[in-house]
């Protein structure tokens, strides 16, 4: 009987080893370990054995059962694993096929420039002020020290609606309006982005509608050196840490002294290139100390308060930063143009 059991064990283990799928394995389990299986048979026939032999054979039979069951289990795990692997193998896809696109648009390059500048100055304690695009002659000119008949009015041919109402030619009227709002009490720290309009025929470098950003700081001890320092921070943030600025004397009716501000060329690092026209410098801003008349007209005591103001054109900055060659691109909304500014 012992012999029989050993034989059964070898036979079963052989079959387990040879099994190639889970079904075969199940059959083996039923065949050898089932209620009608040979080991059960052997155990059933134990009645014939002597009292001494019975527990011995019983133990052996159980041991063999366990060995077979163990082998089946481990074989089963092995087969299951292989089966899963096979399944996964079959599920392999071509990862180089295109993904399902998420449709995204993006901001306009002018918006990108405006928001970058807004955020930069917000970080320095400025607020963003906006004002009407249709202005009165008073705020657009007179409050900015440009009385009627002033020669500098010729500098900006305007779109008038009536004698007293026009499309603003710059964002400076927002300065005048904001100063009035502060009722003669500083500090005032604002930037004013917005659309402006001038009587120009549209071409590669002119647009009858364009945008401007102006900045204004009014407080008790504002100095020209503060203007220079502030614009230096601006130039470095917008065009790179290595940038320098240069002030050149100029004229604007609403500032005195007035300067034009150049930034060292970011394309060639001042070696001279087509962007800076060989000079190493790029003109980027107009600025100056707020004219006392402007302060007084807006209700500020010019003996007590001083200020600086600056203005720039986002179109020009965007054209320089991104190498855009025609200002009309900003207003035709060609999708092939717009989509290039996702990361801007």
């Amino acid at each position: 009987m012992q012999e029989e059991l050993t034989k059964l064990r070898d036979e079963a283990l052989q079959k387990v080893r040879e099994a190639t799928d889970l079904k075969q394995l199940q059959n083996i389990r039923v065949q050898y370990l089932g209620k009608k299986g040979p080991i059960t048979e052997v155990l059933r026939g134990m009645g014939k054995l002597s009292k001494e032999e019975r527990p011995k054979i019983g133990a052996l039979a159980n041991e063999i059962r366990e060995v077979i069951a163990g082998e089946i289990t481990s074989k089963q795990e092995q087969l299951e694993k292989a089966e899963i692997e096979k399944k996964l193998q079959q599920e392999t896809i071509d990862v180089t096929l295109p993904g399902r696109p998420v449709r995204t648009g993006n901001h306009h390059p002018l918006q990108a420039v405006i928001e970058e500048i807004e955020d930069l100055f917000i970080g320095m304690g400025y607020t963003v002020e906006e004002g009407p695009e249709v202005e009165t002659d008073y705020y657009n000119f007179e409050a900015l020290n440009l009385p009627k008949g002033h020669p500098a009015r010729d500098m900006q041919d305007s779109f008038y609606i009536t004698d007293e109402i026009l499309l603003r030619t710059h964002t400076s009227p927002v300065q005048a309006r904001t100063l009035e709002k502060y009722k003669g009490k500083g500090p005032v720290k604002i930037i004013c982005p917005g659309k402006v309009y001038r009587r120009d025929t549209d071409d590669a470098t002119h647009s009858h509608q364009f945008t401007q950003i102006e900045g204004l700081v009014v407080d008790e001890n504002i100095r020209m050196s503060d203007l220079k320092g502030t614009l230096e921070v601006f130039a470095k943030k917008l065009f790179g840490e290595d940038r320098q600025i240069r002030l050149r004397p100029s004229f604007f009716p609403f500032t005195e002294p007035s300067v034009e501000v150049d930034v060292s060329c970011f394309k060639c690092s001042m070696k001279g290139c087509h962007v800076c026209k060989g000079t190493g410098w790029i003109e980027i801003l107009g600025a100056g100390m707020v004219h006392p008349n402007v302060l007084e007209m807006a209700g500020f005591d010019s003996k007590k308060y001083r200020g600086f103001a600056f203005g720039m054109g986002p179109e020009r900055i965007a054209m320089l930063k991104y190498g855009i060659d025609d200002i009309r691109h900003f207003y035709t909304n060609d999708v092939r143009f717009l989509k290039q500014f996702k990361q801007a």
């Binding site: 917000i122 607020t127 500090p187 407080d219 001890n221 050196s225 220079k228 240069r246 002030l247």
Partner: peptide, 28 residues
Amino acid sequence: IEEVARLYGYDYIPSTLPEGSSTSGALT
């Protein structure tokens, strides 16, 4: 003042930042 500044040279004007009271910047 402008006459003095331009003949003195803007290059020689130092760079500073406004001192005065601080303001909090934020979008509305």
